Simulated assay, not measured.
Amino acid sequence: MREHLYWGTQMEQIDREDQVSMTIDDDEILDPGSETDEVNSSNGSDRDGFGQVFTGNGMVSLGEGSKEHGLIKKSFLMGMGLIAKDTNVVAIHKNLNSGFTRQARFESFRVFSKAVAQKCGGDANVKYAWYGGSREEISGIVSHGFSQCGRPASDHSHGVGVQLFPAKFSIDGALSSVADENGVRHMLLCRVILGKPEVVHQGSKQSHPSSKEFDSGVDNVLAPRRYIIWHTFMNSHVLPEFIISFKAPFLKESQRQQANNAFKKPTSPWMSFPTLISILSKFLYPSKMDLITKCYQDFRANKIKRPALIQRVRNIAGDKLLAAVIKSYRNKARTT
Rank of each mutant, 00 (worst) to 15 (best):
H4L: 15
H4F: 10
L5F: 13
Y6G: 00
T23C: 12
I24G: 11
D25W: 14
D25L: 15
D26C: 06
I29R: 00
E35I: 09
E38Q: 12
G51N: 01
V53Q: 08
V53L: 07
N57G: 10
M59L: 14
L62G: 05
E64L: 08
E64P: 11
G70Q: 12
K74E: 14
G79T: 03
M80N: 05
I83W: 03
A84R: 05
A91H: 11
S108P: 04
V111Q: 11
F112N: 11
A117N: 05
Q118F: 12
Q118V: 12
K119W: 02
C120W: 04
C120N: 14
C120A: 09
N125G: 02
S134H: 02
H144V: 14
H144S: 15
F146N: 07
Q148V: 15
R151G: 01
R151W: 04
D155F: 07
H156L: 12
H158F: 12
S170D: 02
I171A: 09
G183A: 00
R185L: 01
L189M: 08
L189T: 09
R191G: 02
V192T: 05
L194S: 03
L194I: 15
K196S: 09
F214E: 04
S216L: 03
D219L: 00
I229Y: 03
I229K: 06
W230E: 05
H231N: 13
H231R: 03
H237L: 00
H237K: 05
F242E: 08
Q255W: 04
N260Y: 11
A262K: 15
T267M: 14
S268P: 07
F273R: 04
L280S: 00
K282F: 14
D290E: 11
L291F: 02
L291Y: 01
K294C: 08
A301Q: 07
L309H: 00
I316A: 00
D319M: 04
K320S: 13
R334C: 06
